[in-house]
Amino acid sequence: QVALSRTQVCGILREELFQGDAFHQSDTHIFIIMGASGDLAKKKIYPTIWWLFRDGLLPENTFIVGYARSRLTVADIRKQSEPFFKATPEEKLKLEDFFARNSYVAGQYDDAASYQRLNSHMNALHLGSQANRLFYLALPPTVYEAVTKNIHESCMSQIGWNRIIVEKPFGRDLQSSDRLSNHISSLFREDQIYRIDHYLGKEMVQNLMVLRFANRIFGPIWNRDNIACVILTFKEPFGTEGRGGYFDEFGIIRDVMQNHLLQMLCLVAMEKPASTNSDDVRDEKVKVLKCISEVQANNVVLGQYVGNPDGEGEATKGYLDDPTVPRGSTTATFAAVVLYVENERWDGVPFILRCGKALNERKAEVRLQFHDVAGDIFHQQCKRNELVIRVQPNEAVYTKMMTKKPGMFFNPEESELDLTYGNRYKNVKLPDAYERLILDVFCGSQMHFVRSDELREAWRIFTPLLHQIELEKPKPIPYIYGSRGPTEADELMKRVGFQYEGTYKWVNPHKL
């Protein structure tokens, strides 16, 4: 086992960053958080920038500027975001240094004079007029057009580079997404736009490419001749908990499936790229999406959770019991969808996408189930092999396979070949997804960000279904809070070829 401390991990990262040409360590950078008073800024962006600063992973002359409508001070920003920093008493001095680099400007999102004030403020910072500028839009999409237009007109660096990070949702359907994309691309070049999907920053999602293309053993079996089906799962054990009003506007397909799960599907299904260059990788992902037809209604199961009468606390409440959810809402909190990649490698292999709230566990994984062994000599005792990439929690890679049961006879039983990170790298604290992705933006690497043509294809696949749901308002199937979801989803999976045995229990190697 390799035991690495946080300091050692960050030392390795620093070495990698400083050796590259793309990370300008000594240049002045300004990180501007648009929507600095909001939840995302408070819980994710400010803490992430602090962790990067604490670990010495930001360029040395980096300033952080918050911008929002609320009249706040840096002290206010500190008060609301610091509880999420997880700072230790030993880091007190470092924390003071961090907040000394912070400033805040209040202004409207659609007022040109406010942006001119913001620009004057940035120019007044040390070497601010020639600094590289990175704008993070932690804002609702309704203000994107006004904000990007004003940034472009008043706040661009004339000497350094300018980059803009856009948070999902990128529209509600193909038409609104196209409108937003066309607007942003009329102001910024594609190499300046970073559409963030934080799932692409997760260690195991990034590991998929290495697993596939750096190991000879997987190449020959990664196709329709050997793989019976692919299941991509995202499960949350909690409901909307008072935030249903926002969720109800989008629903589970827009929230998770059309982005996170579809991105994971691309990494499983794509061909080997010409290189690890950002556009070479994204070219292959677009090719996969172009091979997927629009979702067919007979390959869809929609569910909505109801309270568990035997549960406790939140578990007793259904989705419609959330006071922020519109009365009688038919918005799905669970969806199972089957897609097919219609190309030579994957023809006929079902890709089953499942996601839901208020389920029995927290889990995100990719599961490849292989065909049955031909010419069975073990009297149907063999179960199908599976390769599982567990994204969260407890990152893991393992192969479910058959071995001989101890004893006199040739009785096979299920076991696993474990390729888990935790076994080799004991207690290594890896940077989280937002840390990686923000560092990628500083480096100018777009590999783990969504390109406009990729986004367009993703919406093309799901828009007809979303429009049909909005028009017909089908009643989702009720499922109990804390269950596996509607049984109809299991029946759909069985119908397209997935075999669920229920006889195997994964042993978490992190707890051995």
Rank of each mutant, 00 (worst) to 15 (best):
G311W: 09
H448V: 01
A364Y: 00
E491L: 11
R451F: 07
I377D: 09
T330K: 14
D321H: 07
R254M: 05
I438T: 07
F370G: 03
L359Q: 11
A374N: 13
S445T: 12
R282W: 03
S445W: 12
R282H: 09
Q499S: 14
Q446P: 04
M402L: 14
M264N: 01
T403P: 04
L466N: 05
I438A: 04
Q369I: 06
P350K: 04
E488L: 11
E472Q: 15
W459E: 02
L455A: 05
P431L: 06
W506L: 05
V450Y: 02
E344C: 09
P326R: 06
Q380R: 13
S483C: 10
N423R: 10
N298H: 15
D432F: 09
I292F: 05
L320G: 11
G422A: 11
A336I: 07
E457M: 09
D440T: 04
E361L: 05
L455F: 01
C382R: 11
V338E: 13
Q468N: 13
A489K: 05
D376Y: 06
V496H: 14
K383H: 15
E454C: 02
K357Q: 02
P350N: 00
V507W: 14
V428W: 08
L302N: 05
E488M: 13
A358Q: 03
N360D: 15
M270G: 08
Y479T: 02
I480N: 12
G348F: 05
D322V: 06
Y425W: 09
K400S: 00
M447N: 02
H260D: 03
L262R: 02
N298V: 14
V441S: 08
F410W: 15
I352P: 00
Q304R: 08
R282Q: 00
V306D: 13
E416D: 15
Q380K: 13
V496K: 12
N385C: 05
L387F: 09
L353T: 03
V337T: 15
L353Q: 03
K494F: 13
N308M: 11
V391D: 04
F370H: 05
N423I: 09
M402P: 03
E472G: 14
K363P: 03
E457C: 10
P478D: 12
G311I: 10
A396D: 04
F449K: 02
Y434R: 01
Y340N: 15
V366W: 00
E472W: 11
P464V: 10
T420G: 08
Q304S: 08
I469P: 00
L471D: 13
G444E: 08
W346Y: 03
Q446N: 03
L387D: 02
Y340I: 08
L339H: 07
A332V: 05
V256L: 11
Y504H: 06
D347R: 14
V338D: 06
M402V: 11
F409C: 15
A458K: 02
E470I: 07
G502V: 07
P309H: 09
F498N: 13
L353G: 05
L387T: 05
P486A: 04
I377Q: 08
E294V: 12
D432E: 12
E395I: 06
C291Q: 09
P406I: 06
P393V: 03
Q263W: 01
D376A: 11
S483I: 00
K287W: 06
K426W: 09
D321F: 06
V441R: 03
I292K: 03
V507A: 15
N385I: 03
R495P: 03
L387I: 06
H371V: 08
F370M: 10
T316K: 14
T316A: 14
L267F: 05
D280G: 07
Y479P: 01
P476W: 01
E342H: 14
S278Q: 11
V397P: 04
I438R: 04
L430R: 14
H379V: 14
R354H: 06
L430D: 05
D372C: 07
D418F: 02
L339V: 13
L430E: 06
Q304W: 01
V286W: 07
K363I: 06
V450A: 10
M270W: 02
Y481M: 11
V496Q: 11
H448C: 05
S483R: 08
L261P: 02
Q499G: 13
N259A: 02
T503G: 13
F442I: 13
S329W: 00
R495V: 11
F409S: 15
K400N: 03
N427H: 08
E416W: 04
I389W: 01
T316N: 11
G348N: 09
H260I: 02
V281P: 05
S415C: 10
N411R: 08
L359D: 06
P406L: 07
V288Y: 03
N394I: 06
Q499C: 12
F334Q: 07
E416Y: 06
G497D: 13
Y504P: 05
N343G: 07
V450S: 06
L289F: 07
C266P: 02
V388H: 01
L289Y: 07
I389C: 12
L368G: 00
S293V: 06
V281D: 05
H448K: 12
K405N: 14
R362G: 09
V337L: 12
F334K: 06
A336D: 07
E361Q: 09
Q296H: 15
P309V: 14
A274N: 15
V337G: 14
R460H: 08
V397C: 09
A297D: 15
P323H: 13
R362W: 06
C291A: 14
E416R: 00
D432R: 11
F351I: 09
F334T: 02
C355W: 02
L267A: 07
V338Q: 12
A433N: 05
D418G: 12
L262T: 14
A269Q: 00
K473N: 13
M257G: 08
Y500N: 10
I477W: 11
V256I: 14
M402N: 15
S278Y: 11
G375C: 14
P412Q: 12
D283C: 04
L492N: 00
S329V: 03
K426I: 08
E386S: 06
Q381S: 13
L368D: 02
V496S: 11
I477V: 12
E284G: 11
L262H: 03
P350T: 01
F449L: 04
E386A: 07
I469Q: 13
V428H: 15
N343I: 03
Y425C: 07
D322H: 06
L265H: 01
D376M: 09
G422S: 15
D376W: 08
T420Y: 05
M264P: 00
L320V: 11
